[in-house]
Structure formats: structure tokens, C-alpha cells
Design a binder for these strands. Sequence first.
DNA 1: ATTATATAGGATTATAAGGTCTTGTAATAT
DNA 2: ATATTACAAGACCTTATAATCCTATATAAT
Lengths: 144, 144
Amino acid sequence: MLYSKSAEYAIQAMIYLSENKSEKPIMISKIAASYDIPYQFLAKIVQTLVKQRLVKATRGRNGGINLGRPSHEIYVNEIVHAIDGPPPEREQCVIGLDLCSDETPCPLHDKWKPIRYKIAEMLAGEHLDDLAERVTAKREKMKK
Amino acid sequence: MLYSKSAEYAIQAMIYLSENKSEKPIMISKIAASYDIPYQFLAKIVQTLVKQRLVKATRGRNGGINLGRPSHEIYVNEIVHAIDGPPPEREQCVIGLDLCSDETPCPLHDKWKPIRYKIAEMLAGEHLDDLAERVTAKREKMKK
DNA sequence: ATTATATAGGATTATAAGGTCTTGTAATAT
DNA sequence: ATATTACAAGACCTTATAATCCTATATAAT
Ligand code: FES
Ligand code: FES
């Protein structure tokens, strides 16, 4: 819908890292088990995150991964772009009628444009610290 | 993003029918050429639209398709559902954390819920008559 | 009746996303 | 040193969507 399954898994993994802050690296297998993500698949996704410097990897025994930066400096859209690639330079029209522009709007353009903006705003406005906090709150509630 | 490529083609084809109202059937190949849609692929999509009664087909020489109902009675979401299937009964969480509900919201829930509503509203609130009119306007502008 | 033409529909192929398997390589505990 | 552990990485498999091929069938013009 908004991002690929891979990006969704990446977000979940990053939230996990943000929730379980520790100097010691956290194993990918642990995260995979916790969120019920196929281990090998997550490992592959993490490789990309490492290349993009969003996480740091420590190899070998007692190895694992850590956040590449403080959690309050990592925003959701960064994660999405790291996995799915950067957003298109020119916006595409929702119903595929040539390019999207205010000058030549398609029938849905006026309704779609503010929605698209809201989505971008949502992804750009949330950093991992916020997310982790609220995920923890969700878990608490679900226990009851 | 919001719907499959097939559904997008279906919307385009329906708009075409709405723009070119005529008692005589309109050929699928004409529509396909006009919107640059692979002919055979569109023909297949149209088969589904016919089964769902959104368009009526006339076979044989001078055959083609027509809208199944007056254009002001056909809404975009009907077309999407006809092609992509009905929407899920229970809303899925944007970041895949169990089911979505106000009681156990995920970190993005509060920002995502109104957006999701806006999208549904957009698709349910536009009928073909509106769309066709505005597409024609778009074409006019692009000529200049 | 015959022929041309347009949709109907099953079978098949292409591409991409999602997911698995196997081997390599780095780090560390013993 | 060596065995073990955990990420790295490429090859491979699976599934869903997108697209194509080919033949059947309906209809109207001749
Ligand atoms: S022109 Fe279609 S969404 Fe902007
Ligand atoms: S709980 Fe995540 S979107 Fe509602």
C-alpha cells in the first residue's frame, strides 16, 4: 500500500532495536522470531540497512545489529527509502493519466493531492523514539 | 498503490465509455489504443466488468461495449472492487502489527486512520459522470 | 450460406516481489 | 589453534500480477 513488505519488516526491526536499546548487539534471529518474520528474509533486508548506514552490524559470536544513529534521529521515511528506493522525482497520477500536475489535473487530482501530502507528512514526521514508546504502550494494553 | 494496474486500466476504460456516450457499442481495441493499454489485457479485464454488469458487451461485427448503467450511477470504488475484489472485512495495520483497532493502536494509527478514511471517501464519492467531464477538461488544457 | 469482425475464454509466458538454501567470512570463547 | 557463532552474499525457488497467444463463438453485412 504505502511501502513493500520488505520495508514493513525493516520498520518493525528498527522499532525492535529502538525498544531494546543496549550496547550489546541484538541478533537478527531474535528480532525475526519476535515479529514472526522469516529469518533469512530479514537477514537480507538488514544487509541493505547496513549498507545505508541505518544499522551497524557486528559479526561473529555474540554479534548482532544496533541502530546506526540515535533513535530520535531516524525517521520512518528514511527506512522506506532505504529499502524501496527513493521516491519518484515527478509524481505519478493516481489513475495513470500522464504526469500529475496542478495545471493539468486528472479528475481525482484535487482530492488525491492533499492525501498524498498527508501520507508523506506522516512518514517524515515520525522518528523511531516515538514509535518505540507507543509500541511498548500497545503491548502493555494487549496484555490486559 | 490504491489499486492494481488492472483496476487502473478498468477505470480508464470506463471513463472513456463515459466520455464517448453513444448508443452504438465502442470497440475495446479503440479504447486500448486511446489509453495505450495492451489490447488483449484490456479485453480480459473487460470480461470481468461484463460479469459484474458494469459494462454490457455486444458481440460480432459492429460489436463493442457500453456502460452497464448510467454514468452518474457508477462510482469508482465499484470498479476497483469489481476487479481487485471486495475490501478486507477487518482493517489491516499500516505497519503490520496485528489487527488495527482504536483500542490497541500502533504508533502510526492515529495519523493513518483519517488518511485511510479520506481515501475511501475519495473513491466512494466520485461517479463516472464527474470524472469524464473533468478528463475532457484536462485534454482541452493539454492541447493549448 | 458465407465471410468478416468483435468479444469470450482457456493456456501460456514474463516479470517482479517474496522467500529459501547454501556457502563464505569475520569475530570470539575455549 | 580451533570450533562455534553470527552476519554476508549469491544462487535459487515460489507466488502473484501483468501481459500474450490462440482458438471458439456470436453477430451482422454481403
Ligand atoms: S493528475 Fe492525476 S493525480 Fe494529479
Ligand atoms: S493499529 Fe496500526 S494502523 Fe491501526
